[in-house]
Amino acid sequence: MSEFVETVLRPHFNFWVYVILMMIGLWALIAKNNLIKKLIGLSIFQTAIILFYVSMGVKENANIPILDHHGHEEHVVAHAEDGHAGAHDKKAHVEKSDHATGSHGESHPDATSPDPDTMANPLPHVLMLTAIVVGVATLGVALSIVQMIFREYGSLEEDEILEQVKAGNSDG
């Protein structure tokens, strides 16, 4: 049992659930008759995709992608010194501060370059963060279209709307 958990369930369970949620959403999109149910299905489909992306970026025993910036005070001091030294000449100041940051990476490796394996992959998080907000904006557009359809046909059921559309066509 524990062997099954370790070798089969643990590496793939998230991906199975992403497929299951996607199937639920797709089924609701095709088979459900009510338009709001279809939209809930669409949102579930969307979260399934987001689950897939975020699952890809997970690392075992990793931290959240926010750095511990305990070396911050030293940086501030170093830059203040730079600013003081280069205050007379702007050009020299820029060059100097560039040089200072270049050497900083070597002098404080713990603050500037953490081990990538200890931190969750930030890229899927960035992509999905904007996807969620855009998703709710498009959900709003879809709901407004649903309200217009209800105003026009007085119903949210797909078959009743289709009947009315067909009747309207035969009349015209």
């Binding site: 975020v54 959240i64 992608p65 960035v126 963060l129 969620i132």
Partner: peptide
């Protein structure tokens, strides 16, 4: 899963 920004959103 460690995606705190996504969780907040």
């Amino acid at each position: 899963m460690g995606a705190v920004d996504v969780a907040f959103t």
